[in-house]
Design a protein around this nucleic acid. Structure first.
Lengths: 212, 212
DNA sequence: GTCTATACTTCGATAGAC
DNA sequence: GTCTATCGAAGTATAGAC
């Protein structure tokens, strides 16, 4: 409280650099944002940036680290998956959808998703992260779940890997459509746009695989 | 023949600039390729580039123009769509899949697809092109086709827009996976990778909507 | 921890000789 | 149509005073 006498709640400079960088990176991409620009927006000189971050890339790394830690917090608790499956495919699909949406729930996370979408295209580190953590790992989880459902005869005996692709490719498509194609068109959040579409998708899939 | 006396078939400089630029752009993205680099690869000085193209962006425009003209050549002849539908959903899906694959059949087209995938992220012109020509238009075509099939009671009465999304989101996903995530991993062509996957996808969809 | 000043690099593009 | 030479703008980063 000592340094915040009046109305102004002054954030540490390092935090302001983080926020401004995220804003700019997510709008224009890492390459198209200069250190000068960040400094100007923060209200300091470029050279001062280097008192807080080793270099420009270190800012990006900090953002991704933040993203990873947030992602871990919203993941499924170990072992709870199978209990959920027993409640039937409907429930499982709904919880699954909610899980994705929860990971994009704040403005910060939405910006970082956008940033990752951009940088996946020309940043090797980012592409590997996307491939492993955001694509292969979820695909494996879904395949495993479908396998269990098939084994328990809760759904038709379709190849679980195929089902995983059928389910998840639509999710990736939604991300692509929202974070790449529509990002500047309007300011609806991902949630508003995605909920109905995911509902249609899960209903279609349920109809396709449920046992009457 | 006058200038090609010996073994060397010398392409015009303008063509070589086109080819080299496409190579480099598709590997590294437009921004990360310099005019100097193009010139070096072609074997001339940077200033000579400007005798053939007004500026760097004009090279990119030429590539996209080439892409558009190639795309038009491989599209469905007007009016042939409905005849095809009458042959049943199986045939229609197969022809549809072949249509996509035909558009990526040459190394040049594959490179341009990759380039478009990259530039869609930060080039406004490119993004609009992708949205209209490569996303919305095909979605509308598929929706229309599904509508006809529903009307003719060839498939179950599912919302045709939903079906269009279900079908097409998988295709977009394949593109994304191949042109963005896997591009440097191996050198299989898109065709080799996609054929089986598309087959699984169309079989799943057929099973989901066909009337027994 | 912020500033001024500056080093160093790379970029797209042009002028003008040949 | 190619070359040499060069410009101006913009980028990242560092040194050192305060």
């Amino acid at each position: 409280m000592k340094n915040q006498k009046v109305t102004q709640t002054k954030k540490p400079t390092k935090e302001r650099i983080f926020e401004v960088s995220l804003d700019l990176f997510s709008q224009k991409g890492y390459d198209r944002v200069s250190v000068r620009e960040i400094a100007r927006e923060v209200g300091i000189r470029e050279s001062s940036i280097y008192n807080h971050y080793k270099n420009k890339e270190a800012i990006l790394d900090a953002i991704i680290d933040y993203f990873k830690s947030e992602l871990n917090q919203s993941s499924i608790p170990e072992g709870e998956g199978e209990d959920l499956i027993d409640k039937g495919p409907e429930v499982f699909f709904n919880v699954g959808a909610k899980l994705y949406i929860d990971r994009i729930n704040t403005p910060e996370m939405e910006k970082i998703w956008r940033l990752i979408s951009i940088e996946t295209y020309h940043n090797d580190k980012m592409r590997e992260f996307f491939k492993k953590e955001l694509l292969e790992e979820p695909l494996n989880v879904w395949e495993n779940n479908f396998q269990i459902m098939v084994d328990k005869k809760m759904i038709k005996p379709v190849n679980p890997r195929t089902l995983a692709y059928e389910y998840f490719s639509f999710v990736i498509f939604l991300f692509f459509e929202y974070f790449v194609l529509k990002y500047d068109d309007d300011f609806d959040s991902f949630m508003d746009l995605a909920l109905d579409r995911i509902k249609n998708h899960t209903e279609f899939m349920l109809d396709a695989i449920k046992i009457y």
